[in-house]
Every structure is written in C-alpha cells, then in structure tokens.
Simulated scan of single mutants.
Amino acid sequence: MITPDYVRRMAAYNAWQNRQMDRAMAGLSLEALEADRAAFWGSILGTANHLLWGDQIWMARFGVGAAPDVKLADSPRMHPTHATWSAERFRMDGRITLWAEKLRAVDLTGRMRWYSGAMEQEVSRPVGALVVHFFNHQTHHRGQIHAMLTAAGAQAPQSDLFAMPETG
C-alpha cells in the first residue's frame, strides 16, 4: 500500500508544516490562541494540543515512545502555553522523523491490534493503513488550524505538498 519513502516524505512534510504553524502561532497572544473558535477542539492551541496528543498516541502504538498521560477529552489542555506546546512539538517531530528514517517495507505490513478508547473496543487494522491515517489526521487538524490562524489575522502556512522545499 505504502512505502518507507512515502513515510519519510510525509514525516518531512509534517515537520515543515509544524514549523510554519509554530511561527504563525508565535505571533498571536495567548488569549488569541485560546479563544474559542467553534472548532471541534475549540481553539488554535486546543487543536494543536490534540494533534500533538494524536501523534504521541500513534507513535506509542507504532512502538516509539510512551503514550500521553492524558485522556483524549483532556488533550486540548495538554500544554497550557505556546512555548510548552512548541518545545514538545519539536521533540515529537524529531521522533517521527527518526522513526521514518529507520522504517523498512516489512514494518508496514501485517496488522496491528489495540484497544481504541475512542471506539471503546478492540480494533485490528492493516499497519500501512494506520500509518496513512496517522499522517491524514495531522493534515486534517492542521487544516482546521490554518483556517483559525487566518481568522485570527495571522499569516497562515503554505500547505501545498508540492511547495515543500526538497529534502534530498
């Protein structure tokens, strides 16, 4: 379904997008970042926190690092400031990049089984499809953040994959 090269490309895209998003968020006050913007996770910072939470939970499922110590419902409040979120986002993007660099084709085969708190049941899915979901989840929530940043008057990031600087 997917290759290690695809995963590496998506990991680079993820890090590039998050660096841009971080810069845009840095230009806003904490009040603007926390303002309820009628998004599913409420605010810019709440959605950014949820996205980080999702990355942590999936990386733990993929065997890289620990799962977050907060529940899904509490994910928007995981990091109370832009600075604390930014530091953890930087670390997570490094973890994702290192994972992607070490990935082999065989690592993307087979099935993964886990208990889904969101679905409240045991789930089994193809690993490749879950990795695609992992990156799709990031893109989905960054799209929401992009819209909220624009509404807040910030310069929203360039999000087109083809516009990403070449990495090699």
Rank of each mutant, 00 (worst) to 15 (best):
Y6M: 14
Y6W: 14
Y6N: 06
V7Q: 02
R8Y: 06
R9S: 13
A12W: 01
N14T: 12
N14F: 03
A15Y: 02
Q17W: 00
N18A: 06
N18I: 04
R19V: 06
Q20I: 05
M21R: 05
D22S: 14
D22N: 10
A26K: 13
A26G: 08
A26Q: 14
A26H: 10
L28R: 09
L28I: 07
L28S: 11
S29E: 07
E31N: 09
A32F: 04
L33Q: 03
L33T: 02
L33I: 09
E34V: 00
E34L: 13
A35C: 09
A35P: 02
D36N: 15
D36L: 06
A39Q: 08
F40T: 05
W41G: 00
W41E: 04
S43Y: 03
S43K: 01
I44A: 05
A48R: 00
L52H: 09
W53E: 05
W53D: 02
G54A: 15
D55K: 05
I57H: 01
I57K: 03
M59K: 08
M59H: 07
R61H: 08
V64T: 13
V64H: 10
G65D: 08
G65L: 10
A66N: 13
P68V: 02
D69H: 10
D69A: 12
D69C: 03
V70A: 07
V70T: 11
S75E: 01
P76W: 01
R77S: 12
M78N: 00
M78A: 09
M78Q: 13
H79G: 00
P80R: 07
P80D: 10
T81I: 08
H82S: 06
A83I: 03
T84F: 01
T84K: 09
T84A: 14
W85P: 01
W85F: 09
S86V: 01
S86N: 10
S86E: 11
S86H: 14
A87T: 12
E88W: 00
E88F: 01
E88N: 06
F90R: 11
F90I: 10
F90V: 14
R91F: 06
M92D: 02
M92N: 08
D93Y: 02
G94R: 12
G94S: 12
G94K: 11
T97F: 06
L98T: 14
W99Q: 06
A100G: 04
K102Q: 15
L103N: 03
R104V: 10
R104W: 00
R104K: 15
V106R: 14
V106L: 09
V106M: 08
V106K: 14
D107L: 12
D107Q: 11
L108C: 11
T109A: 15
R111V: 12
A118H: 09
E120S: 13
E120C: 05
Q121D: 08
Q121C: 11
E122W: 15
S124V: 11
S124L: 02
R125L: 12
P126N: 04
V127C: 02
G128V: 01
G128W: 01
A129H: 08
A129R: 09
